[in-house]
Amino acid sequence: MTNALEVRALGYRYRAGFALEGIDLVVEQGRMTVLLGPNGAGKSTLVNLLTRLYAPVSGTVTIASHPLAERPGPALAKLGVVFQQTTLDLDLSVRRNLAYALALQGIAGRRAAIAVAEALDRFGLTESAGRPARALSGGNRRKLEVARALAHLPAVLICDEATVGLDLPSRRALLAHVRTLCRDQGVGVLWATHLMDEIEPADDVVLLQRGQVRAAGTAAALMERVGATDMEAAFGVLTL
């Protein structure tokens, strides 16, 4: 299977010292990879490196076969991102938010109109299309962010704590939606979270702690390795 995202020996340092060191991870197309780690583990720093908001001090990032450092344009064109903090333009309508994101990808005209209509339909936002993003509920704002991140049909979707601030039903609905997209459209998903209940046994898990990968494999394999019956117990053992 083709790798949607490949990270090799990635490192980053803040003035105070290393934030990430020797990070290796792979997200396959059509697979859900959970980037698991406690707060402060370096998940958001890693997301900032994968989206070129930061420049790494070492290592490489390859998105859909395009090296991010050497060919940022083609690499970023294959990337969709949902950040922890909302990045919607709250004063613009739902439709305008989608159209703006597509314009930043160089997509306009009829192609953009079709992509917007499909995104609205897929995420159940058609009725809200003309409303400002500010008027949406927290759950629907997140849906819009995911819709926007996927509107240009990327090969990989990165979600950084995308369910933060949502109530349990909205959280589950959003996650189920992303899983369906991952399965049906073959998008590789990197799902950064600190919540164990968002992980399924078949998911690939990369466990990050203090800026380093502590363990990697499917959730089921990690649980088996440490003899745990659930991911929470496995996490406890693996991060000792």
């Binding site: 083609p74 994101a101 160089g106």
Partner: peptide, 13 residues
Amino acid sequence: TGSMRALLVSPLP
């Protein structure tokens, strides 16, 4: 507010 990120992760220079 974060909306700058949406701009900066665009594939354009």
